[in-house]
Design a protein around this nucleic acid. Sequence first.
DNA 1: CCACAACCTTTTTTT
DNA 2: AAGGTTGTGG
Length: 766
Amino acid sequence: MSKYLENLNEAQLQAVINTEGPSLVIAGAGSGKTRVLTNRIAHLLSQGVRSSAVLALTFTNKAAREMKERITHMVGPQIARYLWMGTFHSVFSRILRAEASTLGYPSTFTIYDTQDAKSLLRTIIKSLSLDEAVYKPGVVMSRISAAKNNLVTPGAYMANSSVREADKMARIPKTGEIYAEYARRCKNAGAMDFDDLLLLTNLLFRDHPEILEKYQQAFQYILVDEYQDTNFSQYMIVKKLAEPHQNICVVGDDAQSIYAFRGARIENILNFKNDYPEFKTYKLEQNYRSTQTIVNAANSLIAKNKNQIHKTVFSENESGHKIKVITAINDQEEGFLVANEIHEIRMREHDNWSDFAILYRTNAQSRIFEEVLRKRNIPYKIYGGLSFYQRKEIKDILAYFRLAINTRDDESFKRIINYPARGIGATTIGRIEEEASRQNASMWEIASNIQHLTKAGLNSGSAKKVTEFIELLSRFGEKAAQTEAFEMAQQIATQAGILAEFYQDKSPESISRSENIQELLNAIKLFSDSAQEEGRDNQLANFMEEVSLLTDQDQDKSDDVDKITMMTVHSSKGLEFNNVFIVGMEENLFPSGFSGTMTLAELEEERRLFYVALTRARKKAFLSCAQQRFRWGKLDFSNPSRFIGEIDLHFLDIQNSRMFPQFHSRVLAEEGKLPPQPARSSHSQPLNRQQQVTRTGTTATPLSDNFEADDPATFEAGMYIEHQRFGRGKIIEIQGVMPEAKAKVFFPNQGEKQLLLKFAKLKISR
DNA sequence: CCACAACCTTTTTTT
DNA sequence: AAGGTTGTGG
């Protein structure tokens, strides 16, 4: 028996050895999914399959790297080297570079990150003289992204009446035009955004059957990890590639689909049986990671999912402690309690710091725990947040690299043409940009031609400065094609005057920046050396290719020091820790505006009433203050007078975006009081737990007896986990009463209710 | 026309 | 914390 088949349970073994035809591997959390994938690939290779014929698509670069390492360990580097293994984005950007000319792109195309894309959108929105407050770049971008992920090109977008109707309803009817202009400018700049990498691969395969066939032939065996998180665009690529041979193995778990917000389609895994009728299923149901209690708790939640692929995840580990629910008054106390708990567990169990993890939903939530851990001298490391490659100084220097490689990259051009300051201001840049847009050219093309510059309206002084910049960059560009990456990077950093910038300034901020740049140079050195060792190209372009698809999670910050890990719940997927704290759960609790003595039936009847605080004259002031409160917990409750007389309390039906003045007057008139407070300490009118409350696509799920809470009353009253849409607030437009008004609708907690109450009373007393 | 300072706004989760 | 905007001064 092959050594790749040892130490596998029966389901795993079957999933490894049945290599032909479509396979669906349903892998519950902690069920040894990676092991199955790696062993399956190793097994394929041992059967004589060439490694270059295996395409394995993972979700993160890190996952790809780990898998590759394991396989290298099993079959040796000579064979493992030629596997096609990586994220969708990295694998297909590689293919797109090879086929770029077919699509009318340079093979050195730039990959625009989110920031570049947003900034480009901003300029487009301005140039179409649209209001940025209405056409928010973020919103427009997610619209465009959704379109791309569903393979809707600008032309199709404009022609699609239902999409256009939706844009009209959302009061952004020009989104289609923005999309078209965005696509045009990206093409001009020789740039693709993340979604383009997938969309253009699809178009390439659609319009060039001979190219599709080439890759169909090349990839005889296709494996896809985290299949439940693939979007339509990714799904189509895989489907096309697998069509002739159907040797496709997808691994995933419909219960772990967490990327719907970026277009992931859980149907992809649910419908696998329809796409590949000859499929075989393998269910990995034994969890090796968690205690029985945890598995049972998870199951009790998952059981509520509709349309699931049935499976019974079980654990043969010990039953373990109950999941502890800790109640804290505010974030300060929460930090304090978590730190205490960590200390206690560490004393008791003699665990290492690295056995602990603190998970939260948003990166910003780490702050309070950082503070408390630092105070107690507990070492920690944070994943995510502002990643290294997002820092300003790094992005600045990368922009130089990018522009040297692809002169048409307008976003980089704008970023550095006056950095460090060389007397080229907004007016000049604006003129160049306008002229470029008029001529359908890149900014570089305008700037590198003196006649164009004059035509753009630059005076001779400005034109000279611009020309000097162009000359500097041209020198870099010429060298970049022949010079090794590290050498080149150092030259650019020095000659562009970036390093000098920091030498003069000795502020701590500036020092940390120059350290970061040093770190970047080290990274380039490392890349260059290892590339040379492995016989790959080691020019700057090769480094950039790698870097532009890196993410936070890919950074190996695994300095082997013993530290607590902090990260978002999303990035923790697939990891293991002995002790896990999930913090900031109030964001996910049933909003307190809802809990209380209302029965669920009544709630339904009230049609989801939310409180809304709405100011007139100083609406803005309050809203920003309210946001502060949500974000930082710093609203000054002691000084509400700032807002006297400017707040009305209304009730609002979110679904219909309509005011209900009758509730307003009733409540205010009756007692100047908000509806019944939650029965926090009373069991007299418990919520009916048999029913589920659903609202705007969310499900509230009662917790089971796998949990224990220190404060049973709270637990009783409010302890619901729900799959909630973002946060507690939502910006809505209020129609009818005040057509132009927008308000932040939010679900107040106890303190906020008091505050609102105060306002209401003050208002009435006047 | 540009530089610089002061202020305001903005952030879910990720490739 | 980084970008954008506005205001001041050269």
